[in-house]
Design a protein around this nucleic acid. Structure first.
Length: 958
RNA sequence: GGGCGGCUAGCUCAGUUGGUUAGAGCGCUUCGUUUACACCGAAGAGGUCAUAGGUUCGAAUCCUAUGCCGCCCACCA
């Protein structure tokens, strides 16, 4: 520990050590707070407890759930801001005597992390779409875990006094369980539903996004006026014209009323066509020509129009695929469509413009048309609306309650409430499905036979259909059938890969066809998983009789029979035959082993037939499905039989939840999952939720402190989901801080590369300096412009505090003198009392400011007092009184030839006055340290340790 | 189109229900080795608080309009 001799405070030599002391003390954990009525001088672990603290045992609680930083990178200054603000509140209320919990966590940050990881893969020349789900998940898991560790260390460096023993990650099993239960409850209450709707699709990221994840940007695009039979209409997207299903006009528009309800003849690039004219209020008579093409598959408004006219006009016609390319497969019998099929949208538009011009279909083009387009907030690419089956949360009922609850929440700044209410009042249903791997997989299983969903079920067991590995005959495209061919080396390798993937599922049993290629594959899997093995000849491949052993050419020469259900070769079987024996075998194994995790190793044809039965496919469909690769695994999850059709086999939704769906449950999920858990509690809707002591003690929490940029994303959703699940608002106060901007006033973000590393500046100037610099001069809701100069200024303040303390402690009676002051009489003078009184007023003021969340005023008040009052005026005025104790004074007296007889020459009055002076200064110092502690915890604790070793400033009575 | 915020010292920002000489950090000027601190102390310069009206004994603060800057929400065929 740094000695007081040093004229400058060195944060490098103290901060780490101080944090370790705090952590070791266990006082971040509210369970270790001195207990009510404790009649001891030290707590159970031997730390000193001040008399004041004993008189004021913990009465009430104070809890903040830390906004979990994204575990996909390191902390930036924005994090430092919230750490500081929250730590100020936590330390203040802890000193005030509340039982205080600050619960830390980390967010898996689904899409955000996926994007970060995609970039990493890109650098490595890889691509997430080529990596199997499990492997990709595992890699991202490891990536986030190592980031998480770094982040935790960074939080420690910044002095965060959070309870690490309660730390949570959004993918912790107990959190996921609670998220699942909430989803199940929403489903049962009819508030979560699955529907085919038009959603925002990012072709780059290959996933849908919610409204909040879109960013509208202003753009200039040509506006094409197209001739549509007798009408003319305006569009910026001529390439979607192929998907038009109607033309809409305003019902009041007299110009077009004669066409309404009728079909008009139009000329298109694909030839003549007929299209119906409908009337809809959404059409603006004043825009363009007042007539609009309706393309429900590729435009949200048109989709709505179609919904309103579902019975009058055809269903949406898809003409653009998921990669943002023209998909005219619906027009495959039209030769002209080939010209555009497969083109990127931009290229197609250009070509179509040219062609329309040639065909005389264009009336005019407005080249200066300005409009805004929805883009992906991450990659800025234009979003392509697509119709997709997604899970949605019906938000209106949730929002209504959140609106009513608004008057029970105090917003800082106050304007936050207005913004919050406005958003809730205009809320739309929330798409919570994301087509990425990284996240909480949606706990919806669909019956493989009838598609009936089952939400959050118990999976009894998992069955895997595995095709055998490769043989030389596979390679040579020879018909195998019952021919007993062994695996080649590739085949063994494939089997090994499959076995590794299966290993994580605790396989109990391997059932295999008796063909060598299957037995060999099964044996590899058995070895890897340690499962039992059963051989069953009824799982054999279809017998091809006389054509077995032929390659493609030979088979063709011999006369290939169409790939049909009933066909068979001489001496061979039909698919129908295979289905009969294989299904019989499969059923009997299933009957006996449905509680076990089973791998069934068999053949392509056999798998097709088993699939046919499970999925209730017609023969043509069963045979036309894409071929099954060697060693390919098909997973079947076994649930309670489907209520609708009795089938046992299900597959899970492949999508994951929008991160904010789980984050929205963070306050109650963390508290339910932390601390000692107690019995299960039944909430509304018959869903069991565990409750916990922490939940009972700390929920609702006191403050939600976060950036205003996630007011909708997070705060509003926490209120909605918190109210829905627990019936209570998750927090009483919302404090919204501004964004930290760089010197050019641009938001700091990793993608822009303008982040300032807070740990870097903390390393140079100290965490204390950084913390108070982020607080001083900053108010709720306003953006923060931080400069190094400012931080340096507050570093100087830390040095000032250090020197004030150093000076006072140097004058401690008995420190430099051989003799202690004679009497113990400390009689305060009028000036002492006045100074202490003034101090009390300052302290009350600072406390009041913190209680009102006026951190900047608190910081400035204490700063001004300590430096310009205490140091510049009070200490200066006390110097003559302290002189009596000084060794230097003795020395200078000796120099002057006087015999300085120590205290012998001091009168009792002088002695007492000096003692009073010291006592007053020490009192003020300690109070100043307390006031400063929430803002600058390290330097203040380091000094306190010099004064009262064995105790903690952190735990002193404010 | 709707809403919100800002415009205060050279720079970055405070200024709590309207009340005496409008504050902080950095920068600037002059002076200063005094029981700690030069990462310091003392003294000082610097602001018609965006503009124009209004309410008031009194306005940076409340009201109305205007300008510029920024943000959010919604629609855009």
């Amino acid at each position: 520990m740094l000695e007081l001799l040093e004229p400058r405070y060195d944060h490098r030599k103290t901060e780490g050590e101080i944090y370790k002391l705090w952590e070791k003390s266990g006082y971040f954990n509210p369970d270790n707070s001195p207990q009510m009525g404790a009649d001891i001088n030290a707590d159970k672990r031997g730390y000193k407890i001040s008399a004041n603290r004993r008189r004021n045992p913990r009465k009430s609680t104070f809890c903040i759930i830390m906004p979990p930083p994204n575990a996909n990178g390191s902390l930036h200054l924005g994090h430092a801001v919230f750490i500081t603000l929250q730590d100020i509140l936590i330390r203040f209320w802890r000193m005030k005597g509340r039982k205080t919990l600050w619960l830390p966590g980390a967010d898996h940050a689904g899409f955000e992390t996926q994007v970060v990881f995609d970039k990493k893969l890109d650098k490595e020349g890889r691509n997430r779409f080529e990596i199997p789900r499990e492997q990709l998940f595992k890699e991202i898991w490891e990536f986030t875990q190592s980031n998480k560790k770094i982040m935790e260390e960074q939080l420690r460096k910044l002095g965060a006094s959070c309870d690490w023993s309660r730390e949570k990650f959004t993918l912790d099993p107990d959190i996921v369980k609670i998220v699942y239960q909430t989803f199940e409850k929403l489903y049962k209450d009819g508030l979560a539903y699955r529907d085919n709707r038009i959603v925002n699709w990012c072709a780059k990221h290959q996933t849908t996004l919610s409204e909040l994840e879109t960013k509208y940007i202003e753009r200039e695009d040509p506006l094409y006026y197209i001739k549509y039979g007798p009408l003319e209409l305006a569009t910026v997207r001529p390439e979607t014209k192929f998907g038009d299903t109607a033309v809409a006009v305003n019902p009041k528009d007299k110009r077009y009323s004669k066409y309404v309800g009728k079909e008009i003849e139009i000329k298109t690039l694909l030839g003549p066509a007929k299209i119906k004219v409908i009337a809809d209020d959404a059409v603006d008579m004043k825009f363009g020509t007042g007539a609009v093409k309706v393309t429900p598959a590729h435009d949200p408004n048109d989709f709505e129009i179609w919904k309103r006219h579902e019975n009058e006009i055809p269903a949406p016609k898809k003409v653009i695929d998921q990669y943002g390319r023209m998909d005219l497969s619906a027009f495959s019998d039209n030769e002209k469509s080939k010209r555009y099929h497969g083109l990127k949208i931009a290229d197609a538009r250009k070509l179509i413009e040219e062609d329309m011009e040639k065909e005389g279909l264009l009336a005019k083009i407005d080249r200066n048309y300005k409009h805004s387009v929805a883009t992906c907030y991450k990659c800025q690419n234009v979003l392509e609306p697509r119709i997709l089956r997604q899970w949605f949360v019906k938000t209106k009922p949730l929002a209504e309650k959140a609106i009513k609850a608004a008057n029970k929440i105090t917003f800082r700044p106050e304007s936050g409430k207005k913004v919050y209410l406005h958003w809730l009042k205009n809320i739309r249903d929330w798409n919570i499905s994301r087509q990425i791997v990284w996240g909480i997989r949606i706990p919806a299983w669909y019956c493989l036979s009838c598609s009936e969903p089952s939400i959050n079920p118990d999976v009894k067991s998992r069955w895997f259909l595995v095709r055998h590995g490769e043989t030389d005959w596979n390679k040579e495209n020879r018909v195998m059938g019952h021919a007993d061919i062994s695996l080649n080396q590739t085949g063994f390798d494939q089997a090994k890969d499959a076995a590794k993937k299966l290993k994580i599922y605790n396989i109990d049993l391997v059932i295999t066809s008796d063909s060598a290629r299957c037995q060999q594959t099964a044996e590899v899997i058995r070895k890897e998983t340690g499962a039992e093995i059963i051989i069953d000849e009824n799982l054999r491949e279809r017998s091809y009789g006389e054509v077995e052993g032929m390659d493609r050419e030979e088979l063709f020469k011999h006369g290939r029979k169409p790939y049909m259900y009933e066909n068979k070769y001489n001496g061979g079987e039909s698919y129908y035959d295979v289905e009969q024996r294989a299904w019989k075998a499969f059923s009997s194994h299933h009957l006996k082993n449905n509680h076990k995790n089973v791998v069934l190793v068999t053949h392509g044809g056999t798998i097709r037939m088993i699939n046919k039965r499970i999925k209730n496919l017609d023969p043509k469909e069963a045979l036309s499905r894409p071929s099954i690769k060697n060693a390919e695994i098909i997973q079947l999850d076994m649930l309670e039989p489907c209520k609708k059709c009795g089938n046992h086999f299900y597959e899970q939704d492949s999508d994951v939840f929008d991160t904010w769906f789980s984050s929205g449950q963070w306050p109650f999920a963390t508290l339910l999952a932390s601390g000692q858990s107690s019995k299960l509690k039944v909430w509304r809707s018959n869903i069991e939720h565990r409750t916990s002591n922490d939940f009972k003690t700390f929920y609702p929490t006191d403050v939600m402190e976060t950036g205003y940029d996630i007011l909708f994303f997070w705060v509003a959703r926490m209120v909605m989901l918190g109210l829905y699940t627990t019936g209570k608002i998750p927090f009483k106060n919302v404090y919204l801080h501004g964004l930290v901007l760089d010197k050019d006033k641009i938001k700091m973000s990793k993608s822009k590369g303008n982040v300032i590393d807070p740990l870097g500046v903390a390393e140079i100037y100290g965490s204390d300096a950084l913390r108070i610099a982020l607080v001083a001069g900053n108010t709720a809701g306003k953006d923060i412009v931080i400069s190094e100069d400012k931080i340096r200024g507050y570093r100087n303040f830390a040095t000032k505090i250090w020197n004030i303390s150093r000076f006072i402690l140097m004058n401690k009676p008995g420190r430099n003198n051989s003799k202690k002051p004679g009497g113990s009489i400390v009689k305060l003078t009028a000036a002492d009392k006045k100074n202490i009184n003034e101090l009390k007023k300052i302290k009350a003021k600072v406390g009041r400011h913190i209680e009102r969340y006026e951190f900047h005023l608190a910081a400035e008040t204490v700063y001004h007092y300590v430096w310009h009052n205490f140091a510049d005026k009070i200490i200066e005025s006390y110097k003559p009184r302290l002189r009596a104790y000084s060794a230097e004074a003795a020395a200078s007296a000796a120099k002057a030839g006087q015999s300085y007889g120590g205290q012998a020459r001091l009168s009792a009055k002088e002695e007492s006055d000096a003692a009073a002076a010291y006592s007053t200064l020490e009192t003020i110092l300690i109070e100043c340290l307390k006031m400063l502690h929430p803002f600058m915890p390290f330097v203040t604790e380091a000094i306190f340790q010099k004064i009262r070793a064995g105790g903690f400033l952190m735990m002193e009575e404010w």
